[in-house]
């Protein structure tokens, strides 16, 4: 008789999550993106592993679905890298949930990831994870806004000084 919560993920929940992911194909088909059942099963496995690695627990699915809905219209995603990118994005998501000390909501974090992925990172997952998300997490931990940049702050200070002189 155990109330340990790490062992909750039952086969039933997993099956339900796979079905939910497959349903997303209806939406992503218009962008030429599609997950096979095998991909969906792998993604759910990745999610479980990421949760375990990051010491988190999730009741009900939802996050991969949210990632898919947000990222499906990205110009940097195609069938060639779709499933692989979703694995990386899922991993990143849970890692940075911890790194931001849970101060950022799921939706805000996913939106931030999408904005940077399509914008400054130009589809590079390495830049997104290693630079943009890392900077953002540091900003959040130090009490700045997620957009804060030291370079920008220095420039603004310099401009203020010029204005004064």
């Amino acid at each position: 008789m155990s109330f340990e919560i790490m062992g909750i993920s039952s086969a039933l929940i997993q099956k339900q999550s796979v079905a939910e992911l497959e349903k997303c194909n209806d939406l992503t088909a218009q962008f030429g993106l599609r997950l096979s059942q095998c991909d969906a099963v792998d993604l759910v496995k990745t999610r479980n592993l990421a949760l375990k690695d990051n010491g988190r627990i999730e009741f009900g699915g939802g996050v991969i679905e949210k990632i898919i809905r947000e990222f499906c219209n990205s110009p940097y995603l195609s069938m060639h890298n779709y499933a692989e990118s979703l694995h990386d994005l899922t991993d990143m998501f849970y890692y940075y949930k911890n790194e931001t000390l849970d101060l950022m909501s799921d939706d805000d974090l996913i939106k931030f990831m999408k904005q940077r992925f399509d914008g400054i990172c130009q589809g590079s997952l390495e830049l997104l994870s290693g630079r943009e998300l890392a900077n953002m997490a540091r900003n959040i931990r130090f009490g700045y806004t997620s957009e804060y940049s030291e370079d920008l702050a220095c420039n603004e200070e310099g401009e203020d000084d010029d204005g004064e002189s």
Partner: peptide, 26 residues
């Protein structure tokens, strides 16, 4: 046990103000 886990899911959602679907194990 199942009822306890369902209730935990409900409380966790409230704990996160519905903004996060996952929660730290601790």
């Amino acid at each position: 046990q199942l009822q306890c886990i369902k209730f935990l899911a409900y409380k966790s959602e409230r704990y996160n103000d519905g903004e996060s679907s996952s929660i730290r194990v601790e």
